[in-house]
């Protein structure tokens, strides 16, 4: 396992260049180019703000801020898992012909989406600054939560991308799963408005504590306890290890199965 880790570390430049390829390559032909990574979340927030102040006014105060502190991190998770699950299959030619630690492809896919989220957070912070919610010192803890989410996303994506090689339906199952998952996570609603039972049930979802932590930092300006911070990091590590173990178990026959 240690050898594997050093092997992946040796190939870190491949992650960087694949991420760069993904980010630069995607908008290469468009006029506005990389600006789209900022414009996309910007317009998303504008649209949500319009919908939830004019069409369905919500009882939650500053609901659009509430929403976007959940939606933007969730977008990262959805995109990472939704597209990352098929990444080994879509890079079949490369996988069949060249040796590199196969995790690199998945890591690169998730990391590219992560960078997207970081850029989107520039927009989020700008909105926060100009809204009544404002920014507090708690923001320094934001990277910890982001890192935890990265670990969770990577764990799940490793798991599903390896399975997709053997069972191509997995890609579509994942997209259906994600459709349901967004409602099993307190993004659009407040978990405290639910009953005790349901709330506890939602805590089984590893994304729930992560989303709540984002909220606490950015919306409620609450200091998380050390236990919460370690908790989300712990969840992240456990999921990553599980994902990696499954990946390693299945990886041996990739070149033959593809």
């Amino acid at each position: 396992m240690l050898k594997r880790m050093t092997d992946i570390y040796e190939y870190r430049d491949m992650v960087f260049s694949l991420v760069k390829r993904e980010l630069r390559g995607r908008y290469q032909k468009s006029v506005l180019g990389m600006l789209w990574t900022l414009l996309n979340p910007f317009f998303q927030i504008i649209i949500y703000t319009f919908v939830f102040t004019v069409i369905f006014p919500s009882s939650i105060e500053n609901y659009y801020i509430y929403l976007m502190t959940g939606i933007i991190p969730w977008n990262f998770f959805t995109e990472a898992l939704g597209q990352g699950a098929g990444t080994i299959v879509s890079n079949a030619e490369m996988t069949k012909k060249i040796y590199f630690p196969r995790e690199i492809l998945t890591i690169a896919a998730v990391t590219a989406k992560f960078v997207n989220m970081l850029l989107a957070f520039v927009v989020v912070l700008a909105f926060l600054l100009f809204s009544q919610v404002g920014i507090s010192w708690h923001i320094v803890l934001l990277p910890v939560i982001m890192f935890a989410e990265y670990l969770v996303a990577l764990g799940f994506t490793l798991f599903f991308s390896a399975i997709t090689v053997y069972l191509r339906d997995m890609e579509y199952i994942v997209s259906v799963l994600l459709m349901a998952w967004i409602w099993a996570t307190p993004i659009m609603y407040d978990i405290n408005n639910l009953g005790q039972q349901v709330g506890r049930l939602l805590l089984l979802n590893p994304m729930t504590p992560i989303m709540m932590s984002y909220r606490n930092l950015l919306y409620y300006h609450q200091t998380p306890t050390l236990r919460t911070l370690l908790g989300v990091l712990g969840i992240g590590f456990v999921l990553l290890v599980i994902g990696e173990l499954v990946f390693v178990r299945l990886e041996g026959n990739f070149a033959e199965e593809l």
Partner: peptide, 26 residues
């Protein structure tokens, strides 16, 4: 074994050298 792995058609030759080399672990 496989030449030109990871080449992105919209990126320049120079950028692709880096991508391609990185896939070889360089």
């Amino acid at each position: 074994i496989e030449l030109g792995a990871g080449f992105h058609p919209d990126m320049s030759g120079r950028e692709n050298i880096y991508i391609n080399a990185s896939i070889f672990g360089i």
